[in-house]
Design a binder for these strands. Structure first.
Length: 257
DNA sequence: ATGGCTGCGTCACGCAGA
């Protein structure tokens, strides 16, 4: 079973690229972030025609997450992270597919730091930490996947020294990610590729992709059940080089069965 | 250090992204 994540940066503006990627790489499940579209503007027909059933949580202009599957419709469990009923941003959707609980997330960027946006990022992280703990306690196969907006270590940044004051790399944020993983999760990409420079995002500015000035900020966290089934993981890097691409590249894992 | 690029919403820029 192949599960992928892709921050599309606008699901409608990105539709040709998204459809080409789905066709060429054929993930069983695809988690999308940054739909940047209200619910009624989700391109359901095109996704259906591509062979996928989908659930989504849209929002006008910003955020927005979706789970696509071609092995049975995702059975939705929730469409918000618990812990703050006043948080109206669509940044989380959760469903089961083929016996796996999939949490598709888009963690806040947090810039500028310090400030209210950074506070929001940290509080969102706290809520994720609490929910992740509950999920682990259920002792079932879980993947928490998406755009975490965190580079976990210096290896995950092309030029660490220029990011030390950024909300994606500040010690508090790296600690939050580390503490989350320490609950018992497996960072799939890093576990299969220790010591390797792997990026999932390249800025639109200054020819970042051509220079390989990237960041690793899209992650798969696997519960112990899935860690045992993890066979391969990678980044569809070439997609970032396509015409009209997102600033993120798709990331995927291959599970046994 | 800064600005650079892109999508969205509305229709000339402002906001947000990372």
């Amino acid at each position: 079973m192949k599960i992928a994540t892709y921050n599309v940066n606008g699901v409608n503006g990105r539709l040709p690229v998204l459809l080409r990627w789905l066709k060429e790489t054929a993930p069983d499940v695809a988690c999308l972030q940054e739909l940047k579209a209200p619910p009624e503007k989700f391109p359901e027909q095109a996704i259906t025609d591509a062979g996928y059933e989908a659930i989504w949580h849209g929002q006008k202009s910003w955020n927005g997450v979706a789970i696509l599957s071609k092995i049975g419709k995702p059975q939705e469990l929730r469409r918000a992270l618990p812990g703050d009923p006043d948080d109206v941003n669509s940044r989380y959707i959760e469903a089961t597919v083929n016996g796996i609980l999939i949490g598709c997330l888009y963690l806040p960027n947090g810039n500028p730091a310090p400030g209210p946006k950074f506070d929001y990022k940290l509080s969102w992280f706290k809520r994720l930490h609490a929910h992740a703990k509950d999920l682990l306690a259920q002792d079932i196969p879980v993947v928490l996947v998406g755009d975490y907006n965190v580079m976990p270590t210096e290896l995950d940044v092309y030029k660490p020294e220029s990011w030390v004051n950024d909300a994606l790399f500040l010690p508090e944020v790296r600690d939050a990610f580390k503490n989350l993983v320490a609950q018992g999760w497996t960072d799939a990409i890093r576990t299969l590729h220790p010591g390797e420079k792997i990026y999932t995002f390249w800025d639109y500015f200054r020819q970042a992709y051509t220079r390989n000035a990237g960041l690793r900020i899209d992650h798969f966290l696997l519960s112990p059940h899935l860690e045992k089934r993890l066979k391969a993981a990678g980044v569809d890097k070439e997609v970032r080089g396509w015409e009209k691409s997102s600033d993120h590249a798709p990331v995927w894992i291959q599970l046994d069965k």
